[in-house]
Write a protein that binds this DNA or RNA. Structure first.
Length: 803
DNA sequence: CGCGGTCTATGGGGG
DNA sequence: ATAGACCGCG
């Protein structure tokens, strides 16, 4: 077999500026600017040279800065060319930020570094080497919905749902296996042939693997696992990358799973003499081999929160054993948060036994107390958040420096309703994901079919979208023909006339085939945006949506138009970008990538998405039993410790202000249930929290001690600080009313308000308008309510009437 | 084949 | 509450 050596593969060792493998600590020192402002530990982490380095970086300890300067230092001292550096980050956004910061330090020299996520790096490698795996470079990347769709088909074929298989549990199990690098064949070796369940699963796994292969597709887990398999099956391919990447850096190492760990191991493996080109100028050892690349990993086992997708905390805990002669550097000084916030974080995480002691500290002072609030309902809680955000904004805090966290995505609903009403600009990161909407998946399926005609799954999705009279029967006929002749479904389309179908259907199929073929032919020379627009026109997709009466279709049209805008934006950022590049980028966006600091909006996100981010003010909502810790987690080994780490991650995101809120009742899917304060809340020393409304006050409405707190029977509910944090705790005049927000979107038409008008609000009662800003449907009234105080309301939809 | 109704499973985190 | 599966009818 032969390997195409493109530019980067031209053995970078031949122009290597320095040599690797110098004695630890003896590297040339980069200039002072690079070390400016670093503490001794950080400095050491930047300067240390050796085979492997573990930087244990507590939250907010400046690890991004350290990592960035370490990379910049390698380049500046000419120890490495940029092209010899591979840095793995957790999100694309973090990668972009790191690239920028390195560029700021060393200038344009940073060109050629690989800074990307595990998935992006693997896709890059796999596309280059697709042929060695028997695929084409335009393979499709299946997301979890695509995987499940394929599994669903297989379950149907096998009638396997009777054995208790669902697309969900099958895809979960397959994902887990792949993260352990177990493929269908290695799984088959350990199958108990007497267990029909296992035998059936093996068959499903085999068909799933075959289905992906036939469609020239890989799922998310394959991206990592197949790269490892590729490296192991073709050592000479692995050697290409081992020779190229002399410095490998991995961020958030505590969240790597076994497959990712193995990938790193492969990349930093020493190169055997037979894989060293004769003319290499890299320094070779006594046997003629080349030592492995130097490895730097950064992580914090206290922030490991991805066990559910296979993250193995042992990867970081056992790093020193895995990589002998490792250096370990501990970063404990925190540059992000106030001491009060850190004290709370330290107190919480210290309840996790089995961890290395680590105590974050800062020199910035104690700062404000943590604010606590207990709402009567989730809406009440949301109103508190909205009001506090309004206050912060009035005090000069930018919306983009404020974030609201929650454990589950469904919690956004109440928050969004109140935010809209209160006219607070917000953005939900990774919510109901844009790319998961049906109309977007449809449009994307067209593009995928154009790029990868073998993808039958994509073809089936769009065969009858928009409706063109190709139903299940016709699809089956085409599939049958394709199977008989041994071609893909796409290749069967032009032969539709031979199937004896009706003239109308036949014509529709041929027209459909013509649209796809035309697009495929034009793809190499046409921008993704133009391909998409052409397809939308030719298929009449938008027209079909326009023709219906469904009011939601208007939003769907907007979404498709948004996708067109995305493709145009892509073309601006990547003038040379191909359709496959576009599809890859879209497949790999992470929730945190959507963060836009210049948007001027408050960011809403899950605690998981929040990892690695920081904000001046953080609202951590829903701090309740069954939510944080989540109900399901309590049954899982290590679940409660992981949930505690999640809470810890949330707390440590805050720079200046931290708000912890919960609700006494929370309505989920129709019915309302009583919520208990989270056990983790009690782990925070009482004197750190100032309760605006403590759980006790909320239960008793200003009366005696909380029943809810004693409910858990921990005996330590005194720590809630009721009575200490709020002197005298008078039964406060209720300014936050129990909101029962209706689901139907309210519309006040063109109700206009002027300063001085009296209005009545369904929750806040009567009040006087003190100001009106904004135009038309976006106009906002500022109202001074007689009892609830000052609020801002979006006039068009607020539940108000003019008196 | 397409439509519109009823029924049922599913409500955790993500690349 | 909601999306998708399912079923019977025009």
């Amino acid at each position: 077999m032969t390997f195409v050596l493109d530019a980067f593969d031209a053995d970078p060792g031949t122009r290597q500026p320095g040599s690797h493998g110098t004695a630890p600590g003896s590297a040339p020192v980069p200039d002072d600017a690079l070390l400016e402002g670093l503490n001794p530990q950080q400095r050491e982490a930047v300067l240390y040279r050796g085979p492997s380095l573990l930087i244990v970086a507590g939250a907010g300890s400046g690890k991004t800065s350290v990592l960035t300067r370490r990379v910049a230092g390698l380049i500046q001292t000419r120890e490495a060319w940029p092209s010899q550096i591979l840095a793995i980050t957790f999100t694309n956004k973090a990668a972009a930020e790191m690239r920028e910061r390195v560029q700021a330090l060393v200038g344009g020299a940073a060109e050629g570094m690989w800074i990307s996520t595990f998935h992006s790096a693997c896709v890059r490698i796999l596309r280059r080497q697709a042929e060695s795996m028997g695929m084409t470079q335009s393979f499709t990347i299946y997301d979890s919905a695509d995987s499940r769709a394929l599994i669903k088909r297989i379950l149907k074929e096998l009638d396997a749902d009777t054995l208790g298989f669902t697309p969900g549990n099958v895809s979960g199990k397959i994902s887990k296996l792949k993260n352990e690098l177990t493929d269908a064949e290695s799984y088959s070796r350990n199958v108990n042939a007497d267990d029909p369940q296992e035998v059936a699963f093996l068959e499903i796994f085999r068909r799933y693997t075959a289905g992906l292969r036939r469609a020239n597709a890989l799922d998310f887990d394959d991206l990592i696992a197949e790269t490892v398999h590729l490296f192991r099956a073709f050592p000479e391919v692995a050697a290409l990358y081992q020779r190229r990447f002399r410095h490998v850096l991995v961020d958030e190492y505590q969240d790597t799973n076994h497959a990712q760990y193995s990938l790193i191991r492969e990349l930093v493996r020493p190169i055997k003499p037979q894989h060293v080109p004769e003319d290499t100028r890299m320094s070779v050892d006594a046997n003629g081999g080349i030592p492995g690349a130097s490895l730097t990993v950064v992580g914090d086992s206290d922030q490991s929160i991805y066990a559910f997708r296979g993250a193995d905390i042992r990867n970081i805990v056992e790093f020193e054993r895995d990589f002998p002669n490792s250096k370990v550097i501990l970063l404990e000084q925190n540059y992000r948060s106030t001491q009060n916030i850190l004290d709370a974080a330290n107190a919480v995480i210290s309840n996790n036994f089995d961890r290395k002691a680590k105590n974050l500290f800062t020199t910035v002072g104690s700062g404000d107390k943590i604010i606590g609030y207990t709402g009567y309902t989730g809406h009440d809680e949301a109103q508190f958040v909205a009001d506090e955000i309004a206050t912060l904004h009035e005090q000069g805090e930018r919306y983009s420096d404020i974030a609201v966290f929650y454990r589950t995505n469904s919690q956004t609903r109440a928050l969004e309703e109140i935010f809209i009403r209160s006219a607070i600009p917000y953005r939900v990161l990774g919510g109901t994901k844009f790319y998961e909407r049906a109309e977007i998946k449809d449009a994307m399926a067209y593009l995928i079919q154009v790029a990868n005609p073998a993808d039958d799954l994509a073809l089936r999705r769009i065969m009858n979208v928009p409706k063109r009279g190709i139903g299940p029967a016709t699809e089956a006929a085409l599939q049958g023909y394709a199977d008989r002749v041994g071609v893909t479904l796409r290749d069967a389309l032009p032969d539709a006339a031979q199937l004896g179908l009706g003239p109308k259907v036949t014509a529709a199929i041929l027209e459909f085939a013509a649209i796809l073929d035309e697009a495929t032919d034009s793809a190499p020379t046409t921008k993704p945006a133009d391909i998409l627009v052409k397809i939308l026109e030719r298929t009449g997709y938008i027209d079909a949506l326009r023709a219906t009466r469904d009011p939601q279709d208007e939003a769907r049209i907007e979404n498709v138009e948004e996708l067109v805008a995305v493709t145009k934006e892509f073309a601006r950022n990547n003038p040379e970008g191909t359709l496959v590049d576009f599809l890859t980028e879209v497949s790999l966006v992470a929730a945190a990538d959507e963060l836009d600091d210049s948007s001027g909006t408050v960011s809403l996100m899950t605690l998981h998405t929040a990892k690695g981010l920081e904000f001046d003010a953080v609202f951590l909502t829903g701090v309740e039993e069954d939510l944080l810790p989540h109900r399901i987690s309590s049954g899982e080994p290590g679940g409660l410790a992981e949930e505690r780490r999640l809470f810890y991650v949330g707390i440590t995101r805050a720079r200046k202000r931290l708000y912890l809120s919960l609700a006494m009742t929370r309505s989920t899917f129709g019915d309302t249930s009583v919520a208990m304060p989270s056990r983790y809340l009690q782990e925070i020393p009482a004197e750190l929290i100032e309760w605006r409304q403590s759980p006790g006050m909320a239960t008793s409405r200003g009366g005696t001690r909380s029943r809810a707190l004693n409910g858990r029977g921990t005996g330590s509910s005194e720590r809630f600080g009721y009575g200490t944090a709020l002197p005298a705790a008078p039964p406060r005049v209720k300014t936050e009313w129990t909101n029962t927000v209706t689901n139907k979107v309210r519309d006040n038409g063109d109700l206009t308000l002027a300063v001085g008008d009296r209005i009545r609000h369904s929750d806040f009662g009567e009040g006087r308008v003190t100001g009106v800003t904004g135009e038309g449907s976006k106009s906002i009234a500022e109202v001074l309510f007689d009892q609830a105080g000052r609020k801002r309301l979006l006039i068009k939809i607020a539940p108000i009437e003019k008196l």
